[in-house]
């Protein structure tokens, strides 16, 4: 069974189409990356899947069930999103406890106390942070809160929109390790949007390269590592991100 299946998905902002006929399938438990430059429509696809961009044509299926255009609590149970900016995605006037219990309250789930504590422990947050506000936390800790919030409803799919691009490299390593561990523990499916190809190489099995709202290539991560991507544009992207990596490793 596929976790996410998109068929000819075109998302519109107003009258403007931002993606054109996007089609791909992600297997259950797979980690799939969308890469491309800004404006290529990769975040838009995540938004359409999560229900944040309601104007789209085509077909979105989550775990075998087609998704309609309305906000659907069943989709929220299956599929949650982690946003790029941990400074913007947490409510500044709500404590961590309130942020984490809200999804439980909305979906009428009990045992809030135990679930909040357990989830905080699972993402490596000390219990003393529970009644603090986001401004009292560092960027890495906030991103952990955002990940914990996404996992509160025990979804099977996580949509990750540049989860580490606002973080330092050392903190990025911690968050990436955390995401990798959680995926193995809960058999999660990841759809990761990033422009950092090294993160793709660490986290994912397959990737799709996007340009101007279209998928130009779907490849495996082995092709990325061996630099055998087929499309010209993918090669360009790889060279752009490899140029400073390679020059740092082989000082000429």
């Amino acid at each position: 069974m596929t976790a996410i299946s998109l068929t000819n998905l075109s998302v519109y902002y107003g009258e403007t189409p931002t993606t054109h006929d996007v089609t791909f399938d992600i297997g259950k438990g797979e980690s799939f990356a969308l890469v491309g430059e800004s404006g290529s429509g990769k975040s838009t696809i995540l938004k359409a899947i999560a229900g944040l961009a309601p104007k789209w044509q085509g077909k979105i299926s989550l775990l075998g069930t087609p998704r309609n255009h309305a906000i659907d609590p069943r989709v929220a149970r299956q599929c949650q999103m982690v946003f790029q900016d941990p400074y913007g995605s947490l409510h500044p006037r709500k404590t961590i406890d309130a942020t984490l219990s809200e999804p439980l309250a909305i979906h009428g789930i009990g045992d809030q106390n135990e679930r909040v504590c357990a989830q905080m422990a699972a993402v490596g947050l000390d219990p003393r942070f529970r009644f603090r506000f986001p401004h009292q936390l560092s960027g890495g800790q906030r991103q952990r809160v955002a990940i914990a919030r996404a996992l509160m409803l025990e979804p099977q799919i996580l949509l990750l929109d540049e989860p580490t691009s606002a973080l330092d490299v050392s903190v990025q390593a911690e968050v990436l390790n955390l995401l990798k561990r959680l995926r193995h523990q809960h058999n999660l499916t990841y759809l990761l949007v990033t422009h950092n190809l090294a993160v793709v190489s660490f986290m994912c099995e397959r990737l799709a390269v996007m340009k101007r709202g279209r998928i130009v290539e779907i490849a495996t991560v082995e092709q990325l590592k061996q630099n055998t991507l087929e499309h010209d544009y993918s090669g360009e992207l790889l060279r752009a991100s490899a140029s400073h990596l390679i020059s740092a490793e082989n000082p000429s």
Binding site: K180, A198, S201, F202
Partner: peptide, 15 residues
């Protein structure tokens, strides 16, 4: 701590 393009480590070393 930085992931590489040809990453084969299972976990990244943390500071």
């Amino acid at each position: 701590a930085m992931p590489r393009l040809d990453e084969n480590r299972d976990l990244l070393p943390v500071l």
